[in-house]
Design a protein around this nucleic acid. Structure first.
Length: 366
DNA sequence: TCTGGGGTCCTCTGGCCC
DNA sequence: TCTGGGGCCAGAGGACCC
């Protein structure tokens, strides 16, 4: 190693693995007779939204998070199935156990996607191709894979190749290839940011690349401006983080019809708090910050929280605090959604035991 | 057309302390 | 004694993600 010359950073190889139309795929495995048909997974209530849709349904414009009523209008012949998260979790475990056997620890993002760091792996593309074939054979689930020097490009590549895609790309090529795409293709650019960019006349990633970082910072704030500029050029040095600790847990419900009665709201809040505490107790978690969330009929969202001295998962205490917060706010309009939340968890990792990881450490999506 | 549920992270603001 | 600034924390709201 020569003095004054830093050693070249080892080349990173990051893979993003994404299950194709995951929930719909699980349903099709259970009901093969639906294969090739338009299938929508959605709740049944008047305010239900689409959880996912098969590619046949997507051709009619049906997409995730769309109101189920709208999805039915767009694709009236679609078969609508209720979500079965237990089944999705079980299939998810099966898929990621196979992947973890081959690649080691993963960074999970929900049940159906994960990052793996393959830096230093011999012939990573071959390893990944064989892995995708094995997952398909053993579980029936097809994966799309993006391989790149960073997470940002890997994710965009797996998305661009869906379904059953396998796309590997370097940073310069990504900056060229996706220049004509809208900024919303970049993770972290949602509808609001896309609209702000549109208002500035920025309609493509290529256009975003041409805006000096200083100008973006002046218009969008220093941090977001810098980050957008980096993303437009597909720079990303964030690590693949395999252990994530749960920060908060919540339980919320949207009502089929708005609720104006305070007595009814209090009863619902008691139930939500009890369910939340039972879930926390089962995982041995206790928190200090208790919060409520209220969505009014005009879609106004209000949150209130209080931090107590001693961590708890006691139903009575959590319910009392949540009720006090609700009474102090006293919703001025009918309520559409009510939720309760716990955060600031006590560090009880040691108590969870060394043999098994803490239940909320997301080494596996459970 | 009419928008779920469960999360994370970021920004802003205000209170408190030094 | 008063004032300003910085750091820290909690609370609230917003954007985004799957």
């Amino acid at each position: 190693m020569s003095e004054g010359t830093p050693p070249a950073a080892p080349k990173r190889v990051i893979a993003h693995l994404d299950c194709d139309a995951f929930y719909a795929s699980v349903e099709l495995l259970r009901r093969p007779e639906l294969r090739g048909k338009a299938v929508i997974v959605a709740g049944s209530g008047p305010r239900a939204v689409v959880t996912t849709a098969s590619y046949e349904a997507r051709r009619y414009g049906v997409g995730s998070a769309m109101p189920a009523s709208q999805a039915r209008r767009l694709c009236p012949h679609a078969i609508v199935l209720p979500p079965d998260f237990e089944a999705y979790r079980a299939t998810s475990r099966a898929v990621w156990e196979i992947v973890t056997e081959q690649l080691g620890a993963l960074q999970h993002l929900g049940l159906d996607e994960a990052y793996a760091d393959l830096s230093g792996t011999e012939k990573p593309l071959r390893v990944l191709r064989e892995l995708v074939a094995e997952v398909l054979e053993r579980t029936g689930i097809s994966l799309s894979v993006g391989v790149a020097p960073n997470r940002l490009i890997a994710k965009i590549c797996s998305d661009a190749g869906k379904p059953r895609g396998f796309v590997a790309m370097g940073r310069e090529e990504a900056a060229r290839r996706f220049a004509g795409d809208p900024p919303s293709r970049l993770p972290g650019v949602g509808p609001k940011t896309a609209e702000r960019l549109r208002a500035l006349g920025i309609e493509t990633i290529g256009a975003l690349q041409q805006v000096p970082e200083g100008e973006l910072a002046a218009r969008l704030g220093a941090r977001q401006g810098r980050e957008l500029h980096r993303r437009a050029w597909f720079h990303d040095d964030s690590p693949v983080t395999t252990a994530r600790v749960l920060k908060s847990r919540s339980n919320e419900r949207t009502f089929d019809e708005d609720v104006a009665s305070m007595a009814e709201l209090e009863e619902i809040l008691r139930r939500l708090a009890r369910e939340l505490c039972e879930g926390l107790a089962a995982r041995g978690r206790r928190g200090r910050t208790i919060g409520i969330k209220v969505r009014l009929d005009d879609w106004t969202n209000v949150t209130r929280a209080r931090t107590i001295e001693t961590p708890t998962c006691d139903v009575g205490l959590v319910t009392d605090v949540a009720l006090e917060l609700l009474r102090a706010y006293a919703p001025p309009r009918p309520v559409r959604l009510l939720g309760v939340r716990m955060a600031s968890f006590a560090d009880e990792d040691a108590a969870a035991g060394a043999a098994s990881p803490p239940a909320d450490q997301m080494t596996l999506p459970v």
